[in-house]
């Protein structure tokens, strides 16, 4: 079970510069756990201390916003594409 996770530029310092990484898990919460194992520090940029997603961060599963699915409980299947997108258009690293 592996999903592809697309990483926005400001967070690529946690992925060795990669714009996408692979992660295992059947829910968004599990994917975030797995991401943290391989990319330490990434999760706290995306999540609050209680595990909820920070207000200005949007997560999409195959283009669907998880706010309108089941938030961090949203199911993830093998081959799904997950995108982490800041809610707005901020600066990217040059």
């Amino acid at each position: 079970m592996a999903a592809r996770v697309r990483i926005p530029t400001p967070l690529r310092k946690y992925t060795g510069g990669k714009d996408a990484v692979s992660a295992e898990g059947t829910t968004i919460a599990a994917i975030l756990d797995d991401l943290e194992k391989n990319c330490p520090g990434l999760r706290e940029r995306i999540c609050e201390a209680d595990g909820s997603i920070r207000r200005f961060v949007n997560l999409y599963v195959n283009g669907d916003d998880i706010r309108f699915l089941d938030n961090t409980g949203s199911p993830v299947k093998d081959g799904d594409e997950i995108s982490i997108v800041p809610a707005i258009a901020g600066g990217a690293s040059a």
Binding site: R45, V57, I88, G90, G91
Partner: peptide, 8 residues
């Protein structure tokens, strides 16, 4: 750098 303040 990872923020949600549109335009900044």
């Amino acid at each position: 750098s990872f923020h949600g303040i549109e335009g900044l």
